[in-house]
Write a protein that binds this DNA or RNA. Structure first.
Lengths: 198, 198
DNA sequence: AAACTTCTGTAATGAGCGACACAGATGAGG
DNA sequence: CCTCATCTGTGTCGCTCATTACAGAAGTTT
């Protein structure tokens, strides 16, 4: 053991707790007092161990990426690119829906913060309204017959919403109009055509 | 004109400026002082006109949605669901890449906040690393021949990233594992198979 | 021009934030 | 057992935040 008074908490468990808080609240909205409370330590211990709030976040992210990168690299070992992507998406579906450490993915969600819950709810309901409009349109399409009766309007609406949010994030990341149109073109490939089964 | 001293600023222009700030910084990180500075007014005027910061945000969002919903409804008028989606994605590609009022989409990005730019950069580079891994795998696939030489590894990697972020947001929104797997299945439909042209 | 209503600018308030100074506690090495 | 390096808890620092009190300014109405 190192010299001096030993640490009174388990670093790994503390990082787990911190990860859960960051996942739930995002980076900015996760206050140091909230973090220390969940980690079961006092702020000086946090600063001694991780430097500052950003250092703690980076420590959490490093640990987080380590697991995920292993999954990613394993998936990329697949014999074809197509199968590799298939595996990656399957892993994502499983990991993102796991409740442990809060839903979703820290890296992909980008540390998005919702300090004000009423605002987050407002935005969520606005998105819900768009998704509902899509859903209704797809239901109508099934009635009209330009979508197979096996098509699932709910799932299709969710798919389109996922594509739209993905495009928005890519735009934020610097993607230009042509880049976004390419994404849209790929995404349309997943959309069932008139006669198709789904 | 109403009684009393008339308002010294144009409400619509002020909302435009506020929208730009919210787009750039997100809800939480857009401080009232930053907003008033960009809007060219002082805080008491803001509070008199919009109630509070959240009221201002809602006013911005209402105006914002009004335009977008028009586009959306027009697109949904298309004769088939497939064409409707095609139009929506095309509009999104155009709007999200417009520089006016900042990139991306307020509703879809969900008012995500990046108060700390170094953290945002860190996350961005982590995502970049994933995208690079995908890109390299696709390049290899072209060499191996399991992806057509017409396939664009850069565009494909961006597509997969968009799908992953979209899935993450949906997971945050409450989508379960099966829901995410459905999205993945649809998304795979857009991925070029071995012999295909892209 | 006088009265009244509404907006504007200055400046302040209280709360919460990240970060840290300090003294006491705790265990290892001599 | 004593010294020393390190950790812990209490308390506090300066800062920024959203929000508002107050007094003066600017129009409309009479």
């Amino acid at each position: 053991m190192t010299i001096g008074r030993p640490r009174g908490f388990d670093t790994d468990e503390a990082l787990d707790r911190a990860q859960s808080v960051f996942c739930r609240l995002g980076y900015d909205a996760a206050s140091v007092s909230e973090l220390t409370k969940s980690m079961g330590i006092n702020s000086p211990s946090l600063y001694a161990a991780f430097g500052n709030k950003e250092g703690l976040f980076r420590a959490v992210m490093d640990r987080y990426m380590l697991q995920r990168v292993q999954y990613l690299e394993a998936a990329l070992e697949a014999s074809t690119a197509c199968e590799a992507v298939q595996r990656i998406l399957a892993i994502a579906a499983r990991l993102y829906s796991e409740e442990k450490n809060g839903a979703s993915c820290l890296v992909m969600r980008g540390g998005a913060t919702y300090g004000c819950t009423t605002v987050a709810d407002d935005l969520s309901s606005r998105r819900e309204r768009v998704e509902t409009a899509l859903r209704e349109r797809f239901r109508q399409a099934v009635v009209d017959g330009d979508l197979s009766s096996h098509a699932d309007p709910v799932a299709l609406a969710r798919y389109v919403m996922a594509v739209l949010t993905g495009m928005a994030v890519q735009a934020d990341e610097g993607a230009g109009r042509e880049d976004l149109e390419q994404i849209a073109a790929f995404a349309m490939g997943g959309f069932p055509a008139a006669g198709e089964r789904t």
